[in-house]
């Protein structure tokens, strides 16, 4: 017995030292990114969704242009109207985007990790001189770049159609505002991409992961709005009907609704694409003092207005990816 213990102690030493790994965790990252991006861009499911986005872009922009042709001269932000204006029976292009971008993102990531297990390629790939970090990061970046590529192409298409249809070039501010809108859209997709990835690590069945991610998406698009008003009434009840109480309830509801990435995205895009917006939610008389109603804010002020929403979108993307990362690192590879 004593002998066994004696043998154990020097052997156990290297394990305690083994905390630090040698070699870069990003070895092979770009090989993974290149392969995954090629997969995404050639996969049928992506192509279907791209065609769908393309059709909505062309449809909504064309419809908008029919309406705004007459007012081209007066509106200094006519290009931004291409994204935000809804014309019956079509909703606005950003409405379509807030709907389609999550679908694209989830469709790219729901089988990212469990798919490798099911195809039994995981152990073979991880037996190559790369760390797991490179595999997961590569898969995420590939999805992210694909999303960025597709959305940038659509953005260019809308701007191009605008120039052709309206007959004037966009102003510098319009380009800057719509570029910020593009960044917000990409990160909005990033959230769902990372969420799909978390589910693909947690569930071994891709179908379960896809349904799980879609359920979360549906919950936030449809049910969260109903729940927030109920919850706000519970958390900040109006007992005496004072203005303060009413105000607090509205603020609670707004704060709760901002947990949803949809709210963040809609607020961020409206704030940047509509320069006349100076506050979300209720507007107090003090905020309107000295303001001309409907007058546009400068770009920097609009950006300041949506800054929390924009950083919220980016932070949520990073947090969800970190969660997927931790879960994946702890997973056993044997399958």
């Amino acid at each position: 017995m004593a002998q066994a213990v004696k043998v154990q102690s020097p052997a156990a030493q290297p394990v305690s030292q083994a905390r630090k790994r040698k070699g870069s965790p990003w070895t092979g990252l770009w090989a993974v990114v290149a392969k995954e991006m090629a997969d995404h861009l050639s996969s049928v499911r992506m192509q279907i969704l791209e065609v769908l986005i393309l059709l909505t872009a062309v449809g909504t922009v064309y419809a908008v242009m029919q309406g705004v042709r007459q007012t081209v001269g007066q509106d200094p932000f006519i290009f931004l109207r291409l994204f935000t204006t809804a014309r019956e029976p079509l909703p606005a292009f950003i409405g379509f985007l807030s709907f389609l971008v999550p679908l694209i993102a989830i469709s790219m990531s729901f089988d990212a990790v469990n798919g490798e297990f099911n195809r039994r390629t995981m152990s073979r790939v991880l037996a190559q001189p790369i760390y797991r970090d490179a595999l997961l990061m590569g898969k995420f970046l590939a999805g992210f770049f694909t999303l960025a590529l597709v959305l940038t192409a659509i953005w260019l298409l809308v701007m191009g159609m605008g120039i052709l249809g309206l007959g004037l070039p966009p102003s510098g501010e319009e380009v800057a505002r719509s570029l910020i809108f593009l960044v917000a859209t990409i990160f909005y997709g990033g959230i769902w991409l990372a969420l799909g990835m978390v589910f693909s690590v947690v569930f071994r069945q891709p179908a379960t992961a896809a349904l799980g991610a879609l359920a979360v998406w549906l919950f936030f698009t449809i049910f969260w709005g109903m729940l927030t008003s109920l919850l706000a009434r519970l958390i900040s009840p109006v007992t005496y009907g004072t203005a303060q109480e009413l105000l607090r309830q509205i603020q609670t509801e707004q704060a709760l609704s901002r947990i949803s990435p949809n709210t963040l995205y809609v607020e961020a895009t409206l704030g940047i694409l509509n320069p006349a917006i100076r506050s979300f939610g209720i507007l107090l008389p003090t905020q309107l003092e000295g303001a001309i109603v409907g007058a546009p804010l400068p770009l920097a002020q609009s950006l300041m207005l949506i800054w929390p929403q924009l950083t919220g979108l980016i932070a949520a993307t990073i947090l969800l990816f970190a969660l997927a990362y931790v879960l994946f690192q702890r997973q056993e590879i044997r399958a």
Binding site: V15, Q17, K22, A127, I130
Partner: peptide, 25 residues
């Protein structure tokens, strides 16, 4: 690909849990 609970491994003189890239190459 899996960390040992205890004990030591040497493959071609490398420790697979600390220098996996050298081993796997």
């Amino acid at each position: 690909l899996t960390e040992p609970t205890s004990g030591s491994v040497r493959v071609l003189g490398f420790d697979p849990s600390r220098e996996p890239l050298d081993v796997k190459a």
